[in-house]
Design a protein around this nucleic acid. Structure first.
Length: 755
DNA sequence: GATGTCACTTAGTAGCGGGGCA
DNA sequence: TGCCCCGCTACTAAGTGACATC
């Protein structure tokens, strides 16, 4: 965001050191008191400019000036122009001066002229009408203007808050230098946050106007094993050439892992390893069983120990070096804002770790070289340099995509990307948009439900199948279930790709009628097992779909995700199968929070929150492996609880005796002792309660992953509103990273927010 | 409509680091 | 002070869905 005075034609200077805060502006034309031009270019501190323009009473620009303004702005429709007028008016009202015509801009860094779109390189893809409708739709319903109005509602409060934002917010539980989640703050949070959600959004699929970055960080080159670390074949030492040796280390490092016992993994590894061998190695090494990687395994374990045992100074040095790399490569400049990059390192070579029964597990994931890398940046930016003596595969300037770097991996031939961090504008906007689409579904979900109930009676099989599948997606939050190439990936399914073998029908089971038993592997080969009573008509339809089919046949043979999504699109603009998951997750959280939260203490409320979150995680089938240390840590906690209970009994006994004592003595000292002991008891009770809550929470959470739903499915505004309503520090719900990702929600949600 | 490509989100986990406790 | 354990983060696999092409 930056300011422009249209009278002085003052623009910002892009200060790379502090791109978040445009501290200086450049006045290309400096005017005398009559506003005649004195030829000069000066750099002025923004405060000085403000003051100057205030004193010189700069008013709204003429039409000509307005044209200049239009040049710099994103292309906008008439409605937006109108919106602009309104916004300008608001702006003037807001600053209370009514005199100065400042405009607030997003994008176009000062040192880069905002170019007409023609100046951009157009990849053939840019001709597409990509996602345009949905974005416009989003605009129409959630205009920044509207946001401003919402903000205006609490304007006084808001302004105050904005000022306060400069300082780290204090919460009730906060001590100096400590965040509410109890951890000491390592670093200060950035002092001023860019509120991109209060600004105009791009249209027509444009993602940015200016993008500059330093390119990716490559994996370090292979370092040969020291001579004392030997590989043995058939009991005999064998010195491998670097190429084969490097691949042998990938396997050697993994000896303790289950993967290396799996036949598919071993077979794939051996096949790919042999490709890296020279002819001599190839002729000798013919059987993986005869290979002894133990010394390699020991060596890497020892290296790990050495790293752990390093002195503080050594560790600090490494940390500093990592920090330096992060500062250099971990950020990009996008439209005048420094944005954090999510993954700026190219994936290192290794053995492919597919999940579940993946047919390609163990295959060699090759090292990517600069010649494999496509760079995406602004034409007029400083392009990243490839390592000396190399060149990039391509440098393109496609501002209709969000990625900075891409390459094609060799296992599945899929494209990998370097993209921005979830806290970035580009990701945040998309996230916000996702929840808005889900909220739109809320408005028409009843109609859609009635429709699919009706469709169960259709004469057409394809419509019945579509309706039953949609019922499952809605009721059970199943994933869409795209078709997959056989033999390329693990055999996993979603709703549309369910096979007859994945369900069992029971007209009556465990006292319930029309029960469907689901048992299949979903995403990441996580098992979905559920027994659900369904409506009679859905049940009868399922029986029909299964008639005369073999177990390996598709349950919905007249349906796929494309057909389903086309239908959904007709029911609501922007509606796809996955929107149901977002909608049902968020609405469940909201309902559960309402049901479960009671006016108790903070730990109890947080337990309620986690339980609501857990209900969603169960709905979405977000599982995790029970932590390896689970049993032990539960035992430890239980021991602590027992000890605390003992302590409480002791304390109660002591209180009883001191009460008796005080009754006899009737002096101040013994009264004081009673009071002290009472306080001690309530302290112990509080501690015990916390521990018990923690134990319950941990036990209930043993195999459920809360993070996935929290990060991807739950509208953060529900959580923020809940925190505000119940006076819970938001830090108890979201850690620092999550708060950064959901900064937009933290800023805009009030305690009465309804999903 | 089948298939492929691309861009992006969603997902679980390994491993590190630092807080807390003995 | 040292060790243990838990939460955080980086990593990257595995999905979804839009669109192109045949």
């Amino acid at each position: 965001m930056f300011f422009v005075c249209w009278t002085c034609r003052i623009y910002p200077v892009n200060t790379h050191d502090s791109p978040l805060i445009t501290k200086f502006v450049v006045a290309p034309l400096v005017l005398n008191s009559n506003h005649s031009v004195i030829k000069a270019i000066v750099i002025i501190e923004i405060d000085v400019v403000f003051e100057f323009c205030l004193k010189t009473d700069h008013k709204d620009p003429s039409d000509k000036k307005h044209k200049d303004k239009e040049k710099m702005k994103h292309k906008e429709g008439n409605a937006d122009k109108h919106k602009d007028k309104h916004r300008d008016k608001e702006k003037r009202k807001e600053n209370g001066r009514g005199l100065i015509f400042w405009d607030v801009f997003f994008s176009s860094p000062g040192h880069v002229k905002s170019e007409p779109e023609d100046d951009f390189y157009h990849s053939p893809k840019q001709e597409k009408t990509l996602k345009r409708e949905r974005e416009e739709d989003f605009e129409s319903e959630f205009k920044p203007k509207k946001i401003k109005i919402e903000n205006d509602k609490a304007k006084g409060k808001k302004r105050k808050q904005e000022n306060e934002d400069v300082k780290p917010k204090k919460t009730k539980n906060n001590k100096k230098g400590e965040v509410a989640d109890g951890k000491k703050k390592g670093k200060k949070e950035p002092e001023e946050k860019w509120k991109w959600w209060e600004e105009e959004r791009y249209k027509d699929g444009v993602k940015w106007q200016f993008l500059e970055h330093k390119g990716p960080v490559f994996a370090p080159p292979y370092e040969a094993l020291p001579d004392h670390v030997k590989f043995y074949y058939d009991g005999k030492h064998m010195k491998l050439a670097p190429a084969a040796e490097e691949v042998s280390t990938f396997f050697g490092k993994m000896l303790d892992h289950d993967y290396t016992t799996k036949e598919v993994f071993r077979k794939n590894f051996f096949k790919d390893w042999r490709k890296e061998m020279n002819s001599e190695e190839k002729s000798k090494i013919t059987d993986l069983k005869k290979c002894d990687f133990n010394e390699i395994n020991d060596y890497f374990k020892a290296q790990s120990e050495i790293r752990k045992a390093m002195s503080k100074e050594q560790k600090l040095k490494i940390k500093e070096e990592n920090e330096r790399i992060l500062q250099e490569y971990g950020f990009c400049l996008m439209d005048n804002h420094k944005e954090r990059i999510a993954n700026f390192r190219i994936e290192p070579p290794g053995l492919f770790r597919g999940r579940g029964d993946h047919p390609k597990m163990g295959m060699l994931k090759r090292r990517s070289r600069p010649e494999d890398i496509i760079i995406n940046c602004s034409k007029d930016s400083k392009h990243p340099k490839p390592p000396p003596g190399t060149k990039w595969k391509e440098v393109r300037h496609d501002n209709k995509v969000t990625w900075l770097v891409s390459w094609t991996e060799n296992i599945q031939g899929s494209i990998k990307y370097i993209m921005l961090n979830p806290s970035s504008r580009i990701k945040g906007e998309k996230d916000w948009q996702k929840y808005e689409t889900a909220r739109r579904l809320k408005k028409c979900v009843d109609r859609i439900r009635s429709q699919y109930h009706e469709d169960w009676k259709s004469k057409e099989m394809r419509i019945r199948q579509r309706a039953v599948a949609l019922y499952f997606i809605d009721k059970l939050a199943l994933r869409a279930g795209n078709e997959k190439e056989e033999g390329e990936t693990a055999d996993t399914v979603g709703c549309c790709s369910l096979r007859v073998e994945h369900i069992n029908l029971y007209p009556e089971k465990d006292g319930q009628e029309f029960v469907v038993e689901f048992d299949f592997l979903g995403k990441d080969s996580i098992r979905y097992y559920n027994k659900v009573p369904v409506e009679k008509r859905a049940f009868k339809n399922l029986q029909l779909f299964m008639e005369n089919k073999a177990t390996e046949d598709d349950l919905f043979d007249r349906l796929n995700t494309s057909i389903l999504n086309k239908h959904l699109q007709e029911l609501m603009d922007g509606l796809t199968a996955k929107v149901f998951r977002t909608y049902n997750a968020s609405i469940t959280l909201q309902q559960q929070l309402k049901e479960l939260t009671t006016d108790e203490n903070i730990p109890a409320k947080i337990l309620s929150y986690n339980r609501a979150n857990r209900a969603v995680a169960i709905l979405c089938n977000h599982q995790r492996a029970a932590p390896k240390t689970f049993e032990k840590s539960m035992q430890t906690l239980q021991a602590k609880i027992d000890a605390k209970k003992d302590q409480l009994s002791d304390a109660r006994r002591e209180l009883k005796s001191s009460k008796a004592d005080a009754k006899v003595r009737r002096d101040e000292k013994s009264k004081k002792t009673v009071e002290t002991r009472k306080k001690a008891i309530s302290r112990i009770e509080e501690q015990l309660m916390r521990m018990e809550v923690q134990a319950t929470d941990r036990e209930e959470n043993k195999q459920i992953a809360l993070g996935t739903s929290k990060l991807n499915y739950l509208d953060p505004r529900i959580s923020v509103a809940w925190c505000k309503k119940w006076d819970i520090p938001v830090e108890k719900i979201y850690n620092k990273t999550q708060r950064e990702k959901f900064a937009w929600a933290l800023d805009m949600a009030e305690d009465d927010y309804e999903f």
